[in-house]
C-alpha cells in the first residue's frame, strides 16, 4: 500500500523548491505547472520541471505533476513533456466530467506507448474543484483504472459554491463527506486539500484530525513545516499498532481453529474490527495490502 499522508506542492518555476522539496520527507511531491506558475512562465516552468524529473532524485516520494486544466491550451504539451520522464502520476485540476478522464487515459496510453513506458503506469489524481465535479465524484473516480485518488478543491470550490472561507471550513463539510464516500465506493484514496495558514499548526492539526475521521488518507501541504503535523495525525500510534497486532493475530488463530468470532482483552472482535486493525497495520507499514496502486 502506498502511503499518501502528505503531498507537498512545489512551484514549477522555483528551482530551489523543486530540487530540495523531497528532502523534507513528504510521502509525495506535486510539481506544479498550474496555479503556482504565471501564464508568462508556463514554457520555462515546463522545461525546468522536465529536467528536474529527468534527474529523478526524489528519494521514496511518489512523484506527481499538477498539469494545467483540460480546458486550457497547455494540458497536452504538459503531459507530452512530463509523462515520458516516468512520473508516478498526474494531478488534473478542475475535473468535472468522467469523459475527460477517459480522454486523458487514452492520451496517457499513447504517450507511454511511444516512450516505451508500461501502459497504465501513470496514475491520475483528480482535483474536484467545482460543485459539478464533486457531484460526479464517483463516476470520475471510476472513469479509468488509473485514478488513484480524488481530492476536494479549496478556494475554487468555495467560489463555485458562492461562499467564503469560514474559520472551520464549514462550507466544505458536505463536499468532503461526498468525496470520502465516493472514493471508498470506487476503491480509490480520498486526499484532502491544503490548509492555507502555514503558521497555524493547531488549526492544521484540527482540520487533519477531522478529515482523517471522515475517511481521508492524506492531505496536500504547501509548506515543509506542515509535514510533521499531518504525518503525526495519519500515522498510527504505538498503542494502536499493538492493539491491531493483537486483534489480527487473534483473528488468524481463530480462523485456523475454524472459529468465526474471537475475544481480545475480554471484548468480542468481529470482522469489521479485524479489517480496521489490518488497515492500521498497513498504514504502519507492517502489513501488505490495502487500496489499489
Amino acid at each position: 500500500m502506498r502511503l499518501r499522508r502528505t503531498k507537498l506542492y512545489l512551484p514549477g518555476n522555483n528551482p530551489n523548491m523543486l530540487l530540495r522539496g523531497h528532502l523534507f520527507g513528504p510521502d509525495g511531491v506535486i510539481l506544479d505547472l498550474e496555479d503556482a506558475v504565471a501564464m508568462s512562465e508556463k514554457d520555462a516552468a515546463r522545461i525546468l520541471v522536465r529536467d528536474v524529473l529527468k534527474r529523478g532524485d526524489f528519494g521514496d516520494c511518489e512523484v506527481t505533476v499538477r498539469i494545467n486544466g483540460m480546458d486550457t491550451e497547455y494540458w497536452k504539451t504538459d503531459i507530452e513533456t512530463v509523462v515520458p520522464c516516468g512520473i508516478d502520476g498526474i494531478r488534473i485540476p478542475k475535473v468535472e466530467d468522467p469523459k475527460d478522464i477517459a480522454l486523458m487515459d487514452e492520451a496517457l496510453s499513447q504517450i507511454e506507448s511511444k516512450a516505451r513506458i508500461p501502459v497504465g503506469r501513470t496514475l491520475i489524481f483528480c482535483l474536484l474543484e467545482t460543485a459539478l465535479g464533486v457531484w460526479r465524484a464517483f463516476d470520475i473516480a471510476r472513469a479509468s483504472k488509473r485514478v488513484a485518488a480524488i481530492c476536494p478543491g479549496g478556494e475554487d470550490l468555495r467560489a463555485d459554491l458562492k461562499t467564503t472561507r469560514s474559520e472551520n471550513s464549514e462550507e466544505l463539510i458536505g463536499p468532503r463527506r461526498m468525496i470520502a464516500l465516493a472514493a471508498h465506493a470506487a476503491g480509490v484514496d480520498a486526499l484532502d486539500t491544503v490548509y492555507a495558514d502555514i503558521t497555524d499548526d493547531a488549526g492544521l492539526r484540527r482540520e487533519t484530525e477531522w478529515v482523517k475521521q471522515l475517511g481521508f488518507q492524506g492531505k496536500s501541504v504547501i509548506h515543509p513545516n506542515q509535514i510533521p503535523v499531518v504525518h503525526d495525525v495519519f500515522t498510527p500510534t504505538a498503542k494502536e499498532i499493538e492493539q491491531a497486532k493483537k486483534i489480527v493475530e487473534a483473528a488468524a488463530e481463530a480462523a485456523a481453529r475454524g472459529l468465526g468470532a474471537v475475544q481480545v482483552d475480554g471484548r468480542m472482535v468481529d470482522k469489521p474490527v479485524v479489517k480496521r486493525a489490518e488497515y492500521t497495520l498497513q498504514r504502519a507499514g507492517l502489513k501488505a495490502g490495502g487500496e489499489k496502486a
Binding site: P15, L19, D43, A44, I47, L48, R50, D51, V52, R55
Partner: peptide, 10 residues
C-alpha cells in the same frame, strides 16, 4: 548545471 541548461533552453 541543470537549472542553467533549462533557463538557456527557455
Amino acid at each position: 548545471d541543470l537549472v542553467l541548461k533549462a533557463r538557456v533552453e527557455a
